[in-house]
Design a protein around this nucleic acid. Structure first.
Lengths: 231, 231
DNA sequence: CCGTATAATGAGTGCAACTCAGTTTAAATG
DNA sequence: CATTTAAACTGAGTTGCACTCATTATACGG
């Protein structure tokens, strides 16, 4: 076994990886330009300076190639997000950093994000990368709860849907109107979540006695007051 | 000019419309079964009992046919939503009714909703139907503000993204986990929005005993405690 | 420098969306 | 009713593109 496998750019392993990523680059370019259906494998191969058949040595089919592009995108996003978050900051601050980064990124690379929807039904390998990305949110929340900055007992997965769902729909709205990044979206989202999550009061609506509870209690009082009416 | 154009089912106009909707029915069936890419025009034509070429007399291409299916779906959803909402109820109640209806519907017809994403880039005619649907939310909000039930000055479009974004992502999460409708999602969403939107009123839940009911019970207790003491 | 394995090629194949020349059906006219 | 005219329908044929595979080129060990 040789000592240095990653020094020279002429190892066979490295040549393969270079070819693979050049194909991915070409695919990303053509897919984002023309959309999935509009993109031709021939064009991608030409852009990557390989023969059409070569593409199929690296990816089983067009869908698989798309999965590769999308997976790499979300992996990149995960790295960027971890860099955008201050490790020692409070949970709320970290959430805001993630929200800003997320909204910025998906606006900037809207076409690639849209491609994600085309990848899902077929292969599920690229979903792993999305899961990794989403896990960043969970980590922030769990750390916040652990450090008593956030109240315990709030279902994280539901808040996750609020967080990412709102940001993605907001991004779509902005794109539809040809507007750019709007910080008030992040501010308002955090205010909304903050009310039920980050505030000192650990009383989310879910744990509050409902009117039904009140009614039950009242009825029990009334029944106790009038016990001997019917024997 | 004939007097009755919409009585007999044998007018040429009506035959055309019947054929068109039978093609749409077939397309919806095949698309939801096999997905957009998996669906063959030949299968759709066969299902609708017409020749393949006939499909192209009604729709320019496969994308256009998909737009027809998706557009009709959202139009149906709009009608259903308007039926699900009590016209005289408070704004918060109406929002909850819409949320329940929306979550229920997109869970039940998840495949058709997914098709929506395949339709967007091409034709934008079917987007109109989506816009009509979304407008229901706006109407509720505007009426609420008008009747002073909701505070003025909150950007409606941002709340709309919170509302629909959260519900759609929640639906996806549920589907991913093979879970069914979860009412706590609606409750928590409204609690979240309620904090920043309707803090005057504690959100009344539709099927729960109203404050009037509580009041009646309280009065019955009071009457029992002080039966003979009339001033 | 040869033999073998691995990588790359691109002309060829198959399948499905889309077309159109020909046919059927319905409406209009006298 | 018969006849003309227009509209609706058909399905065999065309086209475009994803995917295959027999052939060729390249790398590498002995």
């Amino acid at each position: 076994m040789s000592a240095s496998q990653s020094d020279l750019p002429n190892t066979s392993r490295q040549r393969l990886e270079a070819r693979e990523s050049s194909i991915l680059d070409a695919a990303e370019l053509v897919f984002t330009r023309a959309g999935f259906d509009g993109a031709k494998i021939a064009t991608i191969a030409q852009t990557a300076a390989v023969a059409e058949g070569t593409v199929y040595l690296y990816y089983r089919n067009k869908q698989d190639l798309l999965a590769g592009v999308v997976g790499r995108f979300w992996a990149r996003l995960t790295l960027g997000a971890e860099e955008a978050i201050t490790p020692e900051a409070s949970a709320v601050t970290q959430l805001e950093q993630l929200a800003r980064y997320h909204l910025h990124s998906i606006l900037e690379q809207f076409e690639v994000v849209s491609l994600t929807y085309r990848a899902r039904p077929q292969q599920e390998r690229d979903l792993d990368q999305v899961r990794d990305y989403v896990r960043i949110f969970d980590r922030i929340m769990l750390r916040g709860i652990d450090r008593k900055e956030l109240p315990d007992g709030v279902p994280i997965s539901q808040l996750r849907d609020v967080f990412f769902g709102t940001l993605e729909f907001s991004a779509r709205t902005l794109k539809l109107r040809n507007q750019s990044y709007d910080h008030s979206i992040v501010t308002n989202l955090l205010a909304l979540m903050g009310q039920s999550v980050a505030f000192d009061e650990p009383a989310p609506v879910a744990s509050e006695p409902s009117n039904s509870d009140l009614m039950r209690t009242l009825e029990s009082i009334r029944d106790q007051l009038k016990p001997a009416e019917t024997d």
